[in-house]
Design a binder for these strands. Structure first.
Length: 835
RNA sequence: GCCGGAAUGGUGGAAUUGGUAGACGCAGCGGACUCAAAAUCCGCCGCUCGCAAGAGCUUGUGGGUUCAAGUCCCACUUCCGGUACCA
């Protein structure tokens, strides 16, 4: 079959997509005879159409998947749909349809779009999280959590998004706003279900070390900060006049215990009520508490918030000094962190210092710099540097760092406190007051209380015959057929939980479900998990650095401990690539701004191969890149040029393997082309496998094409020249295959190869072929480039040195000066030092 | 404030272990082909001075180490991201 001189991608792309699907080219099953490679991209939310961000994400993944296949790996490359969630409900309300209908229609459309891109997925393993066959397993996990105490119900102030009518996890509140709709988040007291993610805080933190080799540093840092471990001491202050009541504080500065001059509690602190009852200014204090509680979360957490407080009239007792310590309430103390109470040391904490100045509270210096005495009256700011303890009883004179340990130890020995660790990480609120999500499998019984649904009654199906409410509220509480049930314990009438699970629950384990996606009698298949897990390469946006990636790590550890996962599977994702965004005109593409580049339109114009190639060539994958119409035209020109080269040379090219021509030859042009061919195979392989540098890999292939064009005419004339060209052109084709698979398959077939690209292996470069007869040596004088000399490869240093010194331009620059030193870097460079 | 990351031509970006800065593209300029255009092919393309040969300068700024620095060290500037009354 002859290749037409013009490259026309559309028909051939469709043809090969069909062939791959029919052959099952990308189907992957457990095969212990081959090394596995599990690669996946973050699955999309079925919003309607794929956008350029998806195309970039999945093109990066597909290049890596196809490359690993060429290397002989058994590659698992699955895809699915993160199909529960708010936009479906909103769209359903707007278009007067059902969220499920909307979602499944979008999935159908986007599946076609992905297939048109030629991505090499094992479609048999496709999952959609809104299907009962999927979410029933997470209902099972929930019940297991309940049994093990890793999920619990708690009433507390929650992040409430008034526009989405639901609570949000801490991770979903960005700058005080809803991560989805940007509304200001309010605080609301609600009883909600929580995953006890804090039970894994230590392991989640410690195991970040295991990810250092494969995860970007900044993601590790972000998780580290989010978990926010701080070590310190919990210290008990007895309440004056009520010796059985203790106020416990958490402090990282136990060394300053002797310097405490007041105590501040959060207005929400459980003891507040008891402290203020019956005080003469009780009304005033209550007003303060109310004011603080009602404050907008954003305002309360803002840096500029005026620090305010009110004295309760109560005192507590410093456990070491016996001092009376006045107890205040402060608007800056957070009820949720530590114990909700702070011991204040104004001499050594800037915030306490400012508060004390404002309300006229004394300072007591307990840490001084060496050989210096601090005068509280003269201080303009807190002294927070290291120093030596003063005014600290038996601890006076110690360096404060040692003092911290000594005081903590003494606290422990005397039962007045203990060393402890605090985390910033909160438990994960998983309840959502929304319809389109997985039902939480519990019921409420008047007699028996909260009861788990029986395992054999799973799944609790989300009813589909409901009408979504106009105002966005969940219709579930008003759906008697769903709500009304019987108690699994006593059989009496009971009510179902109408909250659904956060959609991040579904995405916390989908990677593992891929390994046995169609299994009906269990969530996972242990053999498949053992073979495929962990995911060797995960690819997605950095916006999930905390949310999804932290939750998935938590689920992996939890499911491991439940016995669902292999006992040695601690982390789900071995390597993580966080890809940058695709911008247009310097800003994020968005429908509302109207600055969108539609992938479908680009595929129509240039074909999928060009779109894929351009996304990888435009920038390194981690970086944001600005879409450029001129740029994609350049990529189209390159693909067309490669096509044309094959079309023009078709008569002389033989169907040989890549890097196959190694026959002895004295032809310098053949040796030169062969060196290009083999060094490119080496570089491109390393760029893809070790550095994720697809842009430079493509650039190197372009260079090889340029080299072929240079030698083409001369080499076409002889049989050995035609062999060299054939080998080089095969190498180009195999190396391009991960990027532009359709074009490569078509050309490969047209060249008369009996095998298909499915059976081809990545070219193996040959050390011999890389060798040069003559090398160019750069000559510097005093570090400045002054000339170049050619010497036989492997020349002795003194030979190279003589040749360099003999160079006329070098002579000019050393003339009349003394040569002090000559540095020879073999095969590369000579530097003549004169002075 | 703290923690990360970045800064290289007109432009996207290369330079892998300290060893030719600007690979490969894009844009631009000149030429060939064409009646013309598109497509394609060939050539030029960091800045300054110079007719040229050539010389000098150049990787955010200022210092340093080194025969040699985009790369290492110190100080700083700007930008991006994360995080923050966290006790």
């Amino acid at each position: 079959m002859a290749l037409s001189s013009r490259y026309e991608p559309h028909a051939l792309e469709e043809k090969w997509q069909k062939i791959w699907a029919e052959k099952g080219s990308f189907d992957c099953d457990v095969d212990s005879s081959k090394p596995k490679y599990f690669l996946m991209e973050m699955f999309p939310y079925p919003s309607g159409n794929i956008h350029m961000g998806h195309v970039r994400n999945y093109s990066i993944g597909d290049v890596m998947a196809r490359f690993r296949r060429l290397q002989g790996y058994n590659v698992l490359h699955p895809i699915g749909w993160d199909a529960f969630g708010l936009p479906a409900e909103n769209a359903a309300i707007k278009n007067n349809t059902h969220p499920g209908k909307w979602t499944y229609a979008n999935i159908a459309n986007m599946r076609t779009q992905l297939q048109r891109m030629g991505y090499s997925y094992d479609w048999r393993r496709e999952v959609a999280t809104c299907r009962p066959e999927y979410y029933r397993w997470e209902q099972e996990f929930f019940l297991k959590c309940l049994e093990k105490g890793l999920v619990y119900r708690k009433k507390a102030a929650q992040n409430w998004c008034p526009s989405c009518h639901t609570v949000l996890a801490n991770e979903q509140v960005i700058d005080g706003k809803c991560w989805r709709c940007d509304s200001n988040v309010e605080q609301k007291d609600l009883t909600q279900w929580f995953f006890r993610i804090t039970a894994y805080a230590d392991e989640l933190l410690a195991d970040l070390k295991k990810l250092e080799a494969g995860w970007p540093a900044r993601v590790l840092t972000m998780q580290n900060n989010w978990i926010g471990r701080s070590t310190g001491a919990e210290i008990a202050f007895k309440l004056e006049g009520a010796e059985d009541v203790e106020i416990r504080v958490f402090s990282t500065r136990a060394d300053t215990l002797f310097g405490v001059t007041f105590m501040t509690l959060a207005p929400e602190h459980p003891l507040a009520e008891q402290l203020i009852a019956g005080r003469e200014n009780e009304e005033e204090i209550r007003a303060f508490i109310e004011k603080t509680r009602n404050m907008d979360r954003l305002d309360r957490q803002s840096e500029t918030l005026e620090k305010e407080g009110v004295f309760t009239g109560a005192y507590c007792i410093n456990p070491f000094t016996g001092d009376r310590v006045p107890v205040w309430l402060g608007n800056f103390v957070l009820a949720e962190y530590g114990t909700g109470a702070v011991m204040a040391v104004p001499a050594h904490d800037q915030r306490d210092f400012e508060f004390a100045k404002k309300y006229g509270i004394d300072l007591k210096v307990v840490v001084s710099p060496e050989g210096q005495e601090l005068d509280p009256a003269q201080m303009t700011e807190a002294y927070t540097e290291p120093g030596f303890l003063v005014n600290s009883g038996e601890f006076t004179g110690m360096p404060n760092v040692e003092g911290k340990e000594a005081i903590t130890k003494k606290l422990d020995e005397t039962g007045k406190g203990r060393a402890t660790v605090n985390y910033r990480l909160r438990d994960w609120n998983l309840s959502r007051q929304r319809y389109w999500g997985a039902p939480i499998p519990v019921v409420y019984c008047e007699k028996c209380g909260v009861q788990p649904v029986k395992q054999e009654d799973l799944p609790v199906l989300l009813p589909l015959d409901v009408k979504t409410c106009e105002d966005g509220r969940s219709p579930l509480p008003d759906t008697p057929s769903f709500v009304e049930t019987t108690c699994p314990c006593c059989g009496g009438p009971a009510r179902r939980e109408t909250d659904t699970m956060d959609t991040f629950v579904e995405s916390s384990w989908y990677f593992a479900r891929y390994t046995a996606a169609r299994k009906e009698d269990g969530a996972f298949d242990m053999e498949a998990l053992k073979y495929f897990m962990p995911v060797d390469q995960y690819i997605g946006g950095v916006e999930h650095a905390i949310l999804h990636l932290l939750y998935s790590r938590f689920f992996t550890k939890m499911l491991r401990d439940f016995g669902y996962f292999p006992a040695d599977l601690d982390e789900p994702f071995k390597n993580l690539l966080t890809q940058g965004m695709v911008l247009l005109g310097g800003s994020k593409m968005s429908k509302s701004k109207g600055n969108i580049v539609d992938p479908d339109a680009m595929v129509k114009r240039f074909g999928a191969d060009t779109v894929r190639l351009f996304c990888l060539f435009a920038a390194p994958p981690e970086r944001d890149f600005d879409w450029s119409d001129a740029g994609i035209e350049g990529s189209f020109r390159f693909v067309s040029r490669v096509w044309r080269m094959f079309a023009e040379m078709q008569d002389i090219l033989k169907p040989v393997a890549a890097c196959s021509d190694l026959s002895e030859t004295s032809d310098a042009a053949i040796r030169d082309l062969r060196r290009w061919e083999h060094s490119t195979a080496k570089k491109v392989g390393e760029d893809i496998a070790e550095r994720n540098q697809f842009n430079t890999a493509i650039a190197a292939i372009m260079e090889l094409c340029n080299a072929v064009n240079q030698h083409r005419e001369a080499l076409s004339a002889t049989e050995e020249g035609r062999m060299a060209l054939s080998s080089a052109m095969s190498t180009i084709l195999v190396m391009l295959c991960p990027f532009t698979p359709h074009m490569c398959e078509e050309v490969w077939q047209a060249l008369g190869h009996e095998d298909s690209m499915d059976d081809v292996r990545w070219p193996e470069w040959n050390e011999e072929a890389l060798k040069r007869d003559v090398v160019t040596i750069v000559v510097q004088v005093n570090g400045k480039l002054r000339g170049k000399v050619e010497v036989p490869a492997g020349s002795a240093n003194d030979v190279v040195e003589q040749a360099a010194l003999a160079e006329p331009s070098v002579q000019n620059h050393i003339e009349g000066k003394a040569v002090r030193k000559v540095i020879v870097v073999p095969g590369k460079l000579v530097n003549v030092v004169v002075g």
